[in-house]
Design a protein around this nucleic acid. Structure first.
Length: 870
DNA sequence: CATCCGACAGAGA
DNA sequence: TCTCTGTCGGATG
């Protein structure tokens, strides 16, 4: 169906003018002539708008990312088009506003990515089950072969696994070597198909021979068919390994793999795919998530590439300037201290070569020379540390093939290119245990890029726990840190007092909640600051399972190295003099956990934790059945509310038994059964506290109850609502550990908690679940700066509270979720909240606040003042 | 003792 | 399969 589009795109003359390029592009997607001739000029003569579909921008800039950034600065929302297509002489950069996908390819390769543009003809990519790319196909075949060999029982021991991994890496190397003619094309396929039997029985012997011949170990009296293989003098083939036995099926898979056309395989994602599909478990418990190219560009651009391109644009007509720039890029180090399959390094190499090629083109124009010299960017400038041996091999392979593919010179002998396999600096080690500065010694400038493993403090393996303890051995209060903090800290140490910079992708947790107070003082103490950052966005790559995590990007530099800091979000870019550890434009104020409220507010504990494996809790149905059969059970039941039951008005019940009426409760068989099960479950836990709780299995861990009225605050709730849904609950309700409670409180407290001021504070200083609002008392409530107010003010607030309650009562049939639906909130309810907001704000100061930014600044300064007073 | 977190998890469309 | 939005339990301070 789209073959025609593809072939039309392929036939576009790359050298044509911008307008011609655009016309051909649109014709490929079958836009009628009339549409094309009616194209509107947009803002200036370099861009065209196809309304609601496409904005085409022609640029002179060699780095189209700069043009996209410029558009973002002006606000992407204003652009009335789904897809933005930026084109310079050779490359195109495209951005899909809806999916936030980025595509960066040369014009020549554009046809292979036509599906990116299908939304402009009304087809969503997700609906398109198109043929898999060569990359994915190859990776899956590789994974199949790997699994087949593992499952046939050939690779039981650790040593067998290792041999298998090395064999897989060697095979990958051989096929790529064929693709660049370092090995005769089809040689491996022919050897296997000709000299092994269909049963696969002697295939392992043949492979062993092939490896021996290639390594040069065993070349005496070779039969002719093996003698034609070259000697590849690299470490990959040095070790003599046991090759696992093949069977009919695995032999067939290997033949399939060797007949793939490896010339079309893209090294920056192949390695990652291979790795993510066939290293399912590894002894270090590290994850195999890899970073997509568009995410890598979010890191490389602000870290150094944008700056290099700015220099290039400025010196375009200056031979000396261009030569200086060349000298500079030939001496930078790029260092990924947890490189996995190496795709950061590979993309960095590719991008630097692209820039180099641009510089050579500019120099050619200035000097009139025709031939391009050999690249001065060497793979030895690329450093990686990786605790998985197989990954180090994949990284080396990726860098080697990229080195060959991106070298402009036509006179590189494929066999000579092999040397770069061992030239790259890839170290097999645990990066938390080595001294980075002794591995990647700082020449002129080094750039650290990485996407370390994230693991929350309570989810770390003992090994990871020990790693964190080792990295932070000179500090206290470190056992709640995420595993990724190690890389932030070590990066800061590495760049300290140098001009080098670092940029990391990390879980957003390290920029939120308690971790801010635990990590960032240790970073800032080294005179290192955040010079750019990208706020939270949902992690995505093209791997089959897109795991749920929300990430940020953090750029670090020594104080004073970078003056203008850039703060990026999905659609905006802010320039500022400081980026806070919460990734806002504020100052470096850090809010730390407090046990008691800073202001004159009553305590807010968490609700009661069941700790029961579900045995003390009943659904509506279970409760009805119990009461039907045992009417006496009724007095032991109370409504239970966590966030979900509270917000969505879901009926859930719990057994609430005091020591006094325990014997009475035990008379009812189903209740006794539930109590017994709770005891069992608590006893089965390793935790000492749990065993102690088994002594009172009829009760929740905490036993707080409401006597008059309590305010319930859900601990997690959607960030899309205008207000956090909170409400009063009364004595029949038990609040669970999934909500906070101000027990038996005065009504005006409700006014403070529901206010916009409080919400802003909570969003700013508490943690979050992905991007949900995660309320917390120690971080958000106890730290909230609220003025001491008069009785009159309390009365005013109370009046507003009642008017909100009254508005809610008009919709008594609705749940809080429905009343506070972000798209459908009643005008009166909204209004009563706004009145409340202004009353609360008037407690802070007479003149009204003009923006949330102002409100937050006031809150932070009030927080600092209160702290000093205490 | 009692809080904050999760390379998440479960439900609904 | 994607979108939306909050469970549950326990190590940790």
């Amino acid at each position: 169906m789209f073959e025609e589009t593809r072939s039309k795109l392929k036939s576009i003359d790359v050298g044509s003018s911008n307008a011609e390029f655009l016309y051909s592009f649109l014709r490929a997607f079958n836009f009628p002539k009339a549409t094309i001739s009616k194209l509107q000029l947009h803002n200036n003569s370099n861009s065209f708008l196809l309304k609601n579909k496409l904005l085409f921008v022609a640029t002179e800039k060699a780095n189209p990312f700069a043009e996209l950034e410029a558009l973002k600065l002006n606000g992407l929302a204003k652009i009335k088009a789904r897809i933005i297509l930026i084109a310079n002489k050779d490359y195109i950069l495209s951005f899909d506003k809806s999916t936030e996908d980025t595509l960066s390819v040369s014009k020549k390769e554009l046809y292979n990515y036509f599906d990116f543009f299908l939304p402009i003809v009304g087809i969503e990519k997700k609906n398109l089950k198109n043929a898999k790319t060569a990359n994915l196909k190859s990776a899956e075949k590789f994974a199949e072969l790997y699994n087949s060999l593992v499952q046939s029982g050939e690779c039981r021991s650790e040593a067998d696994r290792r041999s298998l991994n090395i064999m897989m890496a060697r095979l990958l190397f051989c096929f790529l070597a064929e693709s660049i003619d370092a090995i005769e094309k089809g040689a491996i396929y022919n050897l296997i198909s000709t000299y092994t039997s269909a049963s696969g029985a002697n295939l392992n012997v043949l492979l062993k021979n092939i490896f021996n011949v290639i390594s040069g170990r065993d070349r005496a009296d070779l039969p002719d068919y093996l003698a034609r293989l070259p000697i590849l003098n690299i470490s990959l083939f040095e070790e003599e390994i046991e090759v696992p036995k093949f069977n009919n099926q695995s032999r067939k898979l290997l033949l399939d793999i060797s007949s793939i056309d490896w010339t079309t395989v893209n090294p920056d994602i192949l390695g990652s795919l291979v790795q993510s599909t066939f290293v399912p478990d590894n002894s270090l418990g590290l994850c195999n998530h890899y970073t997509s190219v568009s995410n890598i560009m979010k890191v490389l651009g602000p870290l150094f590439l944008d700056e290099l391109y700015e220099i290039f644009e400025a010196k375009r007509n200056d031979v000396y300037g261009l030569q200086c720039l060349l000298a500079r890029i030939s001496s930078v180090n790029v260092f990924d201290p947890t490189c996995k399959a190496g795709n950061f390094l590979i993309v960095a190499l590719k991008e630097l070569r692209k820039l180099e090629s641009n510089i050579h083109s500019a120099l050619q124009i200035l000097s009139g020379e025709i031939t391009k010299p050999k690249s001065i960017i060497n793979v030895c400038q690329f450093y990686g540390v990786e605790p998985n041996y197989f990954n180090t091999l994949i990284t080396r392979i990726g860098l080697w093939i990229t080195d060959f593919q991106t070298n402009d010179s036509e006179h590189i002998n494929p066999l000579d290119s092999i040397d770069s396999f061992d030239a790259s600096n890839i170290l097999f080690a645990n990066p938390t245990r080595i001294d980075w500065s002794r591995f990647c010694t700082d020449k002129e400038e080094s750039y650290i890029i990485c996407n370390p493993t994230y693991k929350g403090a309570t989810k770390q393996t003992p090994q990871q726990k020990a790693d964190v303890a080792y990295v932070f051995r000179n500090h206290t209060n470190t056992s709640s840190l995420d595993y990724a903090s190690c890389w932030v800290y070590l990066s800061a140490q590495y760049i300290k007092n140098t001009k080098s910079r670092a940029a990391l992708v990390a879980t957003n947790s390290i920029t939120q909640g308690q971790q801010v107070g635990l990590l960032w003082p240790k970073i800032f103490a080294q005179d290192v600051e955040i010079f750019f950052a990208h706020t939270s966005f949902k992690w995505k790559n093209s791997s089959k399972d897109n795991t749920g995590v929300t990430v940020v990007i953090i750029g670090l530099a020594s104080d004073g190295v970078v003056n203008v800091k850039r703060l990026y979000s999905q659609s905006t870019t802010d320039e500022t003099s400081n980026i806070s550890p919460y990734l806002t434009t504020g100052d470096k104020t850090i809010v730390k956990r407090r046990r008691t409220p800073l202001s004159s507010l009553p305590p807010m504990p968490k609700g009661n934790m069941p700790y029961d494996d579900g045995n003390l809790i009943l659904s509506r149905q279970e409760k009805l059945e119990l009461v039907n059969e045992n009417p006496a059970a009724k007095i032991f039941l109370k409504r239970l509310m966590g966030s979900k039951e509270f917000i969505h008005d879901i009926e859930r019940w719990c057994l609430w038994i005091t020591d006094d009426n325990l014997s009475e409760a035990n008379q009812i068989q189903p209740i006794k059964h539930r109590i017994d099960k709770t005891r069992e479950s608590r006893l089965s836990k390793a935790d000492r506290a749990a065993k102690k709780l088994a002594n009172r299995p009829h009760q929740f861990r905490e036993t707080n109850i409401t006597i008059t009225q309590s305010i319930l605050v859900p601990s997690v709730s959607s960030e899309r609502r205008k207000y956090i849904p909170i409400d009063f609950v009364f004595s029949k309700t038990i609040i669970s550990n999934l909500a906070f409670a101000v027990y038996n409180c005065e009504p005006w407290i409700f006014g403070v908690l529901t206010s916009k001021m409080h919400l802003l504070w909570i969003k700013a200083v508490c943690g979050s679940l992905e991007t949900r609002i995660r309320y917390s008392s120690e971080l958000g409530y106890n730290t909230f700066p609220f003025p001491n107010i008069t009785e009159e003010q309390k009365e005013m607030i109370t009046a507003c509270v009642y008017s909100i309650i009254q508005e809610r009562e008009k919709h008594a049939e609705k749940s809080l979720a429905q009343m506070y639906d972000p798209t459908n909130m009643s005008g009166e309810l909204l209004h009563s909240h706004e009145v409340m907001d202004s009353v609360i704000e008037s407690c802070y100061r007479k003149e009204p606040f003009l923006s949330d930014q102002q409100r937050l600044e006031h809150l932070f300064s009030a927080y600092r003042d209160k702290l000093i007073c205490k």
